[in-house]
Design a protein around this nucleic acid. Sequence first.
DNA 1: GATGAATGAGGTTTCATTCAT
DNA 2: AATGAATGAAACCTCATTCAT
Lengths: 196, 196, 196, 196
Amino acid sequence: MSLREKKIAKKKEEILRSAATVLAEKGYHGTTMEEVAANLLMTKGSMYYYFKNKDDLLYQCHQMIMELSLEKIEQVANSELNPIEKLRNAVKSHVLLATSEKSMFMMMDKPDQHFTGEHLEDALGQRRDYAHFFDKILKEGIEKNVFDENIDIRMVRFIILGALNWILQWYSEDGPQTSEEIAQAFATHLLKMVLK
Amino acid sequence: MSLREKKIAKKKEEILRSAATVLAEKGYHGTTMEEVAANLLMTKGSMYYYFKNKDDLLYQCHQMIMELSLEKIEQVANSELNPIEKLRNAVKSHVLLATSEKSMFMMMDKPDQHFTGEHLEDALGQRRDYAHFFDKILKEGIEKNVFDENIDIRMVRFIILGALNWILQWYSEDGPQTSEEIAQAFATHLLKMVLK
Amino acid sequence: MSLREKKIAKKKEEILRSAATVLAEKGYHGTTMEEVAANLLMTKGSMYYYFKNKDDLLYQCHQMIMELSLEKIEQVANSELNPIEKLRNAVKSHVLLATSEKSMFMMMDKPDQHFTGEHLEDALGQRRDYAHFFDKILKEGIEKNVFDENIDIRMVRFIILGALNWILQWYSEDGPQTSEEIAQAFATHLLKMVLK
Amino acid sequence: MSLREKKIAKKKEEILRSAATVLAEKGYHGTTMEEVAANLLMTKGSMYYYFKNKDDLLYQCHQMIMELSLEKIEQVANSELNPIEKLRNAVKSHVLLATSEKSMFMMMDKPDQHFTGEHLEDALGQRRDYAHFFDKILKEGIEKNVFDENIDIRMVRFIILGALNWILQWYSEDGPQTSEEIAQAFATHLLKMVLK
DNA sequence: GATGAATGAGGTTTCATTCAT
DNA sequence: AATGAATGAAACCTCATTCAT
């Protein structure tokens, strides 16, 4: 990657982060290009140098955070840990990522309300991929006889993902618990649900 | 309530239900008054006879569903059942309500993105009330020694509410499980998390 | 047609005429919705009540004038006159229409620069239809032995249409000749070209 | 002219030709500097080294083609040919030039839509000059008793110019007639209009 | 000479809202 | 009680133009 390309990439990320912040606060339709730009002391027009249109901006926002998340969970799922540790790590890692990058995660909700066509396909695909890693861990846990064989994998996965995504709705840096503590608590309680 | 008032109330509810459907699908800013009206074979203008403005419409939508939910959970929490049954029933009742009135529940997300001022206060208050009922059940369970005394009530409540609210993101009438089965599965798994 | 529909139709035509005036002066891209509206003491926004978008406005403008023209020439071509009179009348009628509705005719140029897809098809089709009537008259003249059998119908038609359409570029109400006189002169000279 | 100046002049002409092509296809307002530049594998910004602004570009485009045309017709009008041959040659030469440089001629329409102030004066002046040469030929023909003394010179000139300029609207390299044949046909038919 | 980046004015379009009827 | 018509603010987006490098 040339120097110039690096510079562009950096600027793009800057914009994406700004966008994510505003998007998280106001939602897709509630966010204006003006605001995203103002956030960066840029002008509306300049942003169109980097992104084709608002949809594109949103999509790439989604991409960025999705790639981050997928990378993390893939790493955990493919590690040499036992299923218990895998699940614990997956949960913790999601909590830590979500709380530290709250604004970016915020916009992962309701893809079908924001995306259409190919973008929607992509977004849903990535979401499925993410979910799949949890299924994999759960299945492995059952096979290895450390998780309760009666659990309904699909339901458990929905419960875990729901709990994790809900964090954005209530988490605040000034809350009574640090994100570490939350991660710990979530891991503990969710594990209790699946252990024998 | 006079006959006329009844008629108005009925019409209002009709509009609210239509609005909820569209709002659920497209989100607040993505929904136009036109669409809501068209859905009812009405005209945009007419709706202003019943609602002061779009915000008001959204707010009353929110109210309607919140009242329904609060009523249900209050009933359960104040019943004579033991904590286990209370929690089971609270979960089940939420699942059944959410799946049957999906469109109405859909819009309960992110109140701070939609409401301001007094309306926001109200909405957050109701949400807190709802959450409080779960806390109450959990506390009672611990006191009565049927729930694990080590659980972190706040965290558990967040997990439960997260799992419940997330249902809207994946539930489909044509899915592999009926809402009854889902309710059952959720109750079972979530209970496992809190039992001794 | 109901009263209301009539009113709408009238308003639409009002707008179309205003649009035609501005379009004639500034060309398609040079014309703004603002100007068209201002011309009628309307607001930009109001025009979208009557027309889907700018393209739609332009297209219907084109339609209006094309229908007028086609009607006129069809009438002449299908009359009982001899070919000489037919050609004379067709020319005269075009001159009179073009000079009296200069602004509307002005925009018939370069349809492929303004229209796309189906609209382009339509516009080109109508243009072909119009041209066809001239061919028909010319052919009839040759068959009836009143026009020179050596003329190249296609070329002659192009010459006539070119001369007629060019009028818009130079005609002015304050010019030295009335539109009647121009019509007369055009008819005379163009006829001379085709007579035996 | 220094070598450097020559290089610049060459580049300028390159740009003008590219611009003419795009302008012909999309019209003034429909053409973006971006497109013109892209056509030459240049960047938008670079073009401002050669041209002050878009208007300037258009104007110089117009100039280039106008000079070409004027040169041709002046040559014909001032030749030693008899009026008949002069008119025939003027017509033919215009046809051949217009068909071979279609894109450049295309933009000669409606100067008052594109130019203002001094540029408009200039453009109209050149147009008048061009027209004048036809008048001169026609007058000479009448004086020398080879053209019908009853023709209305102004009208005939308008007919001829209209027919000639219209060619751009229908001519295509793949059409049934070569440009030579068209030139021939136009000369023949238009002459017939003015001969005794 | 050339260009990448930024800008801002201006255009099109949408939509909540109003109001006379 | 309903609605057709109008409005204007605000959104998205384009593009000629500039300028540092």
